[in-house]
Design a protein around this nucleic acid. Structure first.
Lengths: 189, 189
DNA sequence: GTCTATACTCAGATAGAC
DNA sequence: GTCTATCTGAGTATAGAC
């Protein structure tokens, strides 16, 4: 049917726009990456782009959502620790994405911001599996038992985020190595 | 002399502008805080404001620099750990400042950004005293000796930053308590 | 040295034609 | 589904008043 074709084209165009947007952001930074420039790179007008994504901010949220979806898909079945460190290692290869994440997370503090709910949902979605993994690690003797699983989750998440902030300014920081050392320190005495 | 009077007035106006700017940012967020609106709140025109601060970004860097200067002044003579936790506790009372910091830190990843050098210098300035304090804490038996002082500094800084990110989205997080727990975990077995 | 008025450029977003 | 045209508001450079 005709609708099928149009639909498939829309999906393909969406992905093309996401690719182009990430490229422009990586090259020029969030602030200087205008909707017009991204539209040019994707081969359509600014208004055409906003037909797919309602606003610049929604477009950028979609990039982060696509990244999360890919990370989840690619690490299916892997252990929590390995997934965690793998994602951090991979992030060191995509500075544009890391900067986009930091920028959007800062803006999303405003409850009215389009990314606010995305970040809340993201943290909530990570919470379940991460908690299970931490409890299992404590039972297996890989993480000391005298700390709460919630605290471990918060601190691992926070430290990874904070190391990314520092790494953005100074790429000589080895985020994964610092986190591995933290996991070592968290082991029982 | 006449110069003295004019100079003193300029300094007072600068501080008035910084106060007004922080207020507007806290109320409306970085993005919606326009130079015109801040200028209105400070009682002068946008161009008048830019006479004191060359650009919106430089104005915001000045706010963070003033905060750092105050924090340093107020905690002179206090121990590293108490200063660290005090600053974190105080930050929970000034969400506008925390958001401004996060936003500027994200933008500052671009080496061309006016805040880039500020953040590099800030980290470097913290490094000396913090390293000394960590080494002393290790010698005193408050921090385990099998980790490098540099790693401890990076991780404490990163965790505090990351917890701030999480706290911006969800104010129920107790940043200071989580950091105290981290300091406890870092103690020798 | 302090500050205003004006104006320029560019941004994101919308309306409506095709 | 995509465009052109246009709106509104941003940052800021300039010229010059006081």
């Amino acid at each position: 049917m005709a609708r099928r074709g149009a639909y498939a084209k829309g999906v393909a165009k969406r992905e093309e726009i996401l690719e182009a947007a990430l490229g422009v952001v990586a090259d020029r930074g969030y602030g200087k990456a205008s909707v017009r420039e991204i539209a040019d790179a994707a081969g359509l007008s600014a208004a055409g782009l906003l037909h797919y994504f309602g606003s610049k901010e929604e477009l950028f949220v979609a990039i982060l959502a696509a990244r999360d979806a890919r990370d989840t898909r690619e690490h299916e079945g892997q252990s929590f620790t390995e997934t965690f460190l793998d994602v951090v290692r991979h992030n060191a290869a995509v500075p544009g994405l890391v900067r986009l994440y930091a920028r959007l997370a800062a803006d999303a503090a405003d409850p009215e911001h389009p990314a606010h709910d995305f970040f809340l949902a993201r943290t909530a979605a990570l919470e379940g599996p991460a908690r299970e993994a931490v409890v299992a690690a404590q039972e297996a003797g890989d993480i000391r038992a005298d700390v709460s699983p919630e605290w471990v989750m918060r601190v691992l998440h926070a430290t990874a985020d904070g190391l990314q902030s520092a790494w953005m300014l100074d790429h000589s920081i080895d985020m994964a190595a610092d986190l591995e050392e933290l996991l070592r320190v968290l082991r029982p005495a």
